[in-house]
Design a protein around this nucleic acid. Structure first.
Lengths: 339, 339
DNA sequence: CTGAAAGCGCTTACAG
DNA sequence: CTGAAAGCGCTTACAG
């Protein structure tokens, strides 16, 4: 492998100068620069990352991560992804601070403050889509602290990128799956999280839109469970009791476990196709028991690692990192046999 | 972060000695070792990987990778995984040489020789399950060159691990999917690659086993296409012509594209569920066109990166790396809407 | 059994 | 505009 030392020797300048040229730092005569670049190119120079990493120990990058509280186990996997990548980036002197807070504006605002106190240079957040939070984030961005949204986007926030699901598409995929896994007439119940949360309403829209073309389907009932298992249990119990004709259920979000409990009790003997999202442990359990037919996953670990990688690249090399607006997770369907 | 330097200072010995203690190199008095260990533990010492990586530039690890030829595009993704990991391991002075050869004993034997000529210390291979190849591999292993099998295992080879699909399970999952996506009577045609190749026959077995419990299913015809698209085209054409009652097809392996072409021509107007494996470009195309109903993927990139990671860990730290016998890929189901 | 020193490749503060 | 030197943290050949 070619090294800076080698290039310095061949071009008759010092290693410092070679470094300056190759990293576009200024203060080198164009003449010298030209010569160094030519030699580097000819030798196919590639910087050695281990060397860069060691030298980078002197700097410090600090990145703040704010996601939902322990009550939502989906984020366990996202955080696994963050930590795996953080471990890798520790090479380059990058430190990460993770805050898990309630899904609530005040909690998010104080988590943001806490991150700032710790001196973070960038923030990755699953934002609550609230005016105050958005305003706060836009303030940071104006002050030169970039923001990446993960798993859930915020309208009107000037974040550099969103990393997560395409919710409209994932609802549509759920509809397509429902079509593939049923025949004849199907009467559907939909259990939403919260219609005011964009991702939930997008999944609902994608799902409905997909089935609206198909005369086999009839959407009987749509209810909100606010991601709460007990509420979800009650809603599904009522749905199944009031609508004995229901033979398809779609959960757009959390509260799957409570809803499945209701199916286990009220739905005995009925052949109901149940489609959900994600594979948190309780969902896997219900797949195992044959209550859930299929669940659509969204690469939670990737969401964590990709967003952190993006932020780090952006911080360490703002001009040369080109960032897309949206990074969408792949959707992976799981059934009992592939979980 | 605590460094070796810091520990050396606090325990009043040199950095060399600290290094010897912490890495279990011998030649240190138990007394000194004890003291150093205590201090390291107290400070929560973790080796800095950037430092290790830089120092490791002096050594060289060379790993040989042997997979199938360009004719099989599934391996493009596996190789992407290898290369991504190789890039990461380049930190640690690890070099990788990839050979893509025909799926044939002689080609594999000469690729193995070529790797040895390049001085590899370990080999990752998708082995052709042939006596000569197995014997050759066992010879290497006896000479202290470890082998990992990827994507396809070889019986009787003393490899340290297998990284790839659980084929029996993936066939069974295909059967389960077929159950979920059909109703009433289903007449099935199976298109195998080659029954002599273990993975193909395992998928067949898993699939049949799964459906044998279910009286809705009747397996009408099973044919081998030897992974050849033209052959596959002919077989499927004949199947569909001779068995107008066929309404379910399962492709255990390659030759999907040729088979799908036949469905497009002969199967017009027939409602046939088609289940395949992997998502090579031609398969994605046929999903798009609505010919394939669903395809079961097996994390090809992960297979590449995981096996290389494993080999590197094993080479750089043989005693302390514990290796499982089998590393199974996750199965991800894709439909048109989630591809 | 232990230490001093050089080295891996890149970066940067300092001197000129 | 350029160079010499020190340093990031770990490893190792050499000397004692």
């Amino acid at each position: 492998m070619t090294t800076i030392k080698e290039i310095a020797r061949l071009s008759g300048v010092s290693r410092g100068t070679v470094d300056r040229v190759l990293n576009n730092r200024d203060g080198v005569s164009e003449e010298t620069a030209e010569r160094v670049r030519a030699i580097a190119k000819q030798l196919g120079y590639k910087p050695n990352k281990a060397g860069m990493a060691l030298a980078a120990q002197k700097k410090k990058y600090r990145i703040g991560i704010i996601v939902f509280s322990r009550k939502n186990p989906f984020f366990d996997k996202v955080i696994e992804g963050f930590l795996e990548k953080a471990d890798e980036l520790a090479f380059f002197g990058c430190e990460v601070t993770v805050k898990r807070v309630a899904y609530h504006p005040a909690a998010q605002l104080s988590a943001i403050e806490a991150c700032l106190d710790e001196g973070v240079q960038g923030i990755i957040i699953t934002p609550y889509n609230d005016a105050k939070v958005c305003e706060k984030l836009n303030g940071l961005i104006a002050d030169g602290i970039p923001v990446i949204t993960v798993n859930s986007d915020a309208e009107n926030v000037n974040r550099i990128a969103y990393v997560g699901s395409d919710y409209l598409n994932s609802g549509s995929a759920a509809g397509a799956l429902m079509q593939l896994m049923t025949h004849d007439k199907v009467n559907i119940g939909i259990i939403l999280g919260d219609r005011n949360i964009l991702c939930h309403s997008q999944r609902e829209a994608g799902f409905k839109d997909r089935l609206s073309e198909d005369s086999r389907f009839n959407i009987i009932s749509v209810e909100e469970n606010y991601d709460d298992d007990l509420k979800s249990y009650d809603i599904v119990s009522d749905m199944l009791r009031n609508h004995p004709e229901i033979n398809g259920l779609y959960f757009t979000a959390a509260g799957v476990y409570g809803g499945c409990k209701a199916i286990q009790e009220i739905g005995v003997g009925r052949d109901i196709r149940v489609i959900t999202h994600d594979d948190v442990p309780t969902t896997v359990d219900m797949l195992d028991k044959g209550i859930i037919t299929a669940t659509i996953c969204q690469e939670p670990m990737w969401q964590g690692s990709r967003s952190l990688e993006l932020m780090f690249n952006y911080l360490s090399n703002p001009e040369q990192t080109q960032v897309k607006n949206y990074y969408y997770a792949q959707l992976n369907i799981k059934i009992r046999e592939t979980k």
